[in-house]
Design a protein around this nucleic acid. Structure first.
Lengths: 103, 103
DNA sequence: GATCACTATGTCTTTTTTGACATATGGTGG
DNA sequence: CCACCATATGTCAAAAAAGACATAGTGATC
C-alpha cells in the first residue's frame, strides 16, 4: 500500500495493517480527509518557516503540544474547525487557507 | 447597525440589541465567522437550485431539519466541519467548497 | 551513551457539537 | 379561517472534539 493511502486511512481513524484495506470511502469522505491532510501539512510547513516548535504554536493558539501534533498528522480527533482556526490565528490569510483546501 | 454586521455577531453567539455592539472580534475570529456565513449561504443557494427542502437535505446528509436551518443561518452551534461535510455530501466538489471559503 | 529538545501517541475529564424533538412563525391554496 | 408545507428557534441527551497530562520515541550534540 502506498504511504499516501495509508495516511488517509489512518486519518479516517482506521488502523491499517490489522484488517481494513478493502474499506471504501465515499468521495465526500475522501475529500473531507484530503482537506484535513492538506491543512495539517500546511500547518507543519507554516510552523517550519517560522521556526516554531509545536509547543510554541500551542501557546499561540491556546492549546497543547499534543493537539498540535495531532493537527499536523490530521488525526481523526481533530476537526477542520480546529485546523482552520489555528491557521487563521497564526495569521495565515483566509484566502490562503481557502486555497490550501482546494487541493 | 448594518444587517451584515448583525448577522456576523449573531453567528458568533451574541445577541445584538441587548448589550454588545462595542464587542471586538479578532481578525481570525472574523474570518472564521465569515467562512461559516459563506458556506451557509452556499448551502442555501445549492439547495435552492436543486429545489430541495431543508427536510430533504437533512435526509440526504443524515441530520435534522433544524440543523439544516441552523447551518444556513451559520448559527454559532454549527461547525465548519458540518457545513463542509454537508456540502461535500451534496456533491459539491472540494474545489468549489474551497473557493466559497476564499471570500 | 547520556542529556536535551522536539515530536508522537494514549488516555483522561470537560466542553462543544450533534441530532432529535417540540414548537413557533410565515407563507399558500382551498 | 383552516390545513398544509417550509423554515426558524429553543432545549436536551448523547456523541464528538477539546485541552491536559503522562509517557514513549527520535535525533542531535556533547
Amino acid at each position: 500500500m502506498k504511504a499516501a493511502k495509508r495516511k488517509r486511512l489512518e486519518a479516517a481513524g482506521w488502523h491499517v495493517g490489522t484488517s481494513a484495506d478493502f474499506l471504501e470511502l465515499s468521495d465526500a469522505e475522501q475529500s473531507y480527509i484530503d482537506m484535513k491532510l492538506a491543512l495539517g501539512d500546511a500547518l507543519k510547513a507554516t510552523r517550519a518557516t517560522r521556526r516554531l516548535s509545536q509547543t510554541d504554536v500551542a501557546a499561540l493558539v491556546a492549546s497543547s503540544q499534543s493537539r498540535v501534533a495531532k493537527m499536523e498528522a490530521a488525526d481523526a480527533s481533530v476537526s477542520l474547525d480546529l485546523l482552520v482556526r489555528t491557521l487563521l490565528t497564526l495569521g495565515v490569510p483566509r484566502r490562503r487557507v481557502a486555497r490550501m483546501l482546494g487541493g
